[in-house]
Nucleic acid binder design. Structure first.
Length: 414
RNA sequence: GCGGGUGUAGCUCAGCUGGUUAGAGCGCCAGAUUGUGGAUCUGGAGGUCGUGGGUUCAAGACCCAUCACUCGCCCCA
């Protein structure tokens, strides 16, 4: 730490950036609230086991991206790399299993040890929802719909497309995975290095490889559709019918897959071409096996997570805060009177800025820089008369107003 | 973890085939204007040229290393 600099991949958030961030969270929370989602805040760290078990030892997140450390009690702790595992843990350990169905919204920082680039940081922030305890496709539709509504409320839905796929139920999925691996093993020689690694960890990912040799092999690979059983097809059909009903357009994307075993049925991503290499704005799926994997009762779930930074880059700048009133006392007696006046005005709901020193000219400059709407000047002359001089900084006109009437005067103008 | 690009003032950048004291615009501070801002004019502060080493009579510039930022790969939000 030779220099004082932020840790790689972390950022300070202030001014407009902070406002964008906040706007995303507030809009999402408000919209999700109308669907009956309520906020849950889980700790930003958990026992490492919570993530290792749920995400799978072979996943990239667990094998190379976790911020883990041993605490003073000799426990292995990990800064959360995503939100679902913590929510699922809270569901099991917090005795929420009696309250199904459960609709939860979360928001906050996540941590992954990755090489930063556009739309990707080591500390980033997500919003997310989980709908726990509903096995029917109606839940998938509702979860996707609330996500689409949030993107719409933020004014960015136009630039985004929903990609949709099904992974089928466990039976269909295992059958397909087996067939795929068998096929790929027969073409091992032609596969890229990356894909050879995927063969063990995440064979379905090979379907989405960018390597040309891989693509040729994949072109003749068994098709997922042939392995979907009737129940799975039915489920997927109902999800699509629901999306049609609410008028949310989607693109079928056969290559959209999730690597982890507990994912099933619906998988989806809201993607854009406006964020460089990071196209995914919001992504999720159904995870019926997750809670059982963690040691809880067999409970279905479906949800998504979205990157706040990525969304914040796409939205219009939120409105700047209200213009303040600049209160300018001249002289000691006036300063005391001004402190009281500032307090009264703030209590009455006005945004008041009052400097700490300098003469009238400097303070006027400062008021101008702060984009104040009015300057309220109190000097000896004003004090004697029990008034303040109020200058409209846009028009330059000024009037004297009795001290007790200042709030009313400014309120009327605003 | 791998590959490309970039590091000069608070910000955006210029700085020639290495050559004397490193510049501009914006911003900041002060004055013109000791109770009246925005415009204008004048002046000022602010730089270990990312860091360390090397080549050279001479390095902001060339070489090596390192750190940071950035874009991409892997993977993901």
């Amino acid at each position: 730490m030779a220099k004082l600099q932020p840790v790689r991949g972390t950022h300070d958030l202030l001014g407009e950036d902070a406002r964008r961030h906040r706007h995303v969270v507030e809009t999402a929370l408000e919209t999700a609230g109308r669907y009956g989602f309520s906020e849950i805040q889980t700790p930003i760290f958990e026992f490492t086991e919570v993530f290792a078990r749920t995400l799978g030892e072979t996943s990239d997140v667990v094998s190379k991206e976790m911020y883990s450390f041993t605490d003073r009690g000799d426990e292995s702790i990990t800064l959360r790399p995503e939100g679902t595992a913590g929510v699922a843990r809270a569901f099991i350990s917090g005795g929420l299993t009696q309250d199904l169905p459960l609709k939860l919204f979360y928001q906050g920082p996540m941590f992954r040890y990755e090489r930063p680039q556009k739309g990707r940081q080591r500390q980033f922030h997500q919003i997310g929802v989980e709908l726990i305890g509903v096995p029917t496709p109606q839940a998938d539709v509702e979860v996707i719909t609330v996500g689409a509504d949030i993107l719409d409320a933020l004014g960015i839905f136009e630039g985004i497309v929903l990609q949709l796929n099904t992974l089928g139920d466990t039976e269909s999925r295992q059958a397909y995975r087996g067939a795929l691996v068998e096929y790929l093993m027969g073409h091992k020689d032609g596969l890229s290095e990356d894909s050879l690694r995927r063969l063990d960890a995440n064979p379905l990912r090979i379907l989405d490889s960018k390597d040309e040799g891989d693509r040729k092999i994949v072109a003749d690979a068994p098709s997922f559709g042939d392995y979907l059983n009737a129940a799975s097809e039915d489920f997927y059909g109902t999800v699509k019918a629901g999306l049609d009903a609410v008028g949310i357009p989607y693109q079928q994307n056969d290559r959209l897959v999730r690597g982890l075993d507990y994912y099933c049925h619906t998988a989806y991503e809201f993607v854009t071409d406006r964020l460089g290499a990071q196209g995914t704005v919001m992504a999720g799926g159904r995870y019926d096996g997750l809670i059982e994997t963690m040691g809880g009762p067999s409970t279905p779930g479906v949800g998504w997570a979205a990157g706040i930074e990525r969304i914040a880059m796409m939205i219009e700048a939120p409105a700047a805060p209200a213009r303040p009133i600049s209160l300018i006392p001249v002289g000691e007696a006036a300063t005391i009177a001004a402190i009281k006046l500032a307090h009264d005005l703030r209590k009455a709901g006005h945004s008041v800025e009052m400097g700490y020193s300098a003469n009238l000219g400097k303070r006027m400059k400062r008021a101008n820089k702060l984009n104040a709407s009015h300057a309220v000047i109190i000097g000896e002359t004003e004090l004697e008369k029990g008034v303040a001089t109020i200058r409209d900084l846009d028009t330059g006109t000024q009037v004297e107003v009795a001290l007790g009437k200042i709030g009313d005067h400014l309120g009327a103008e605003a």
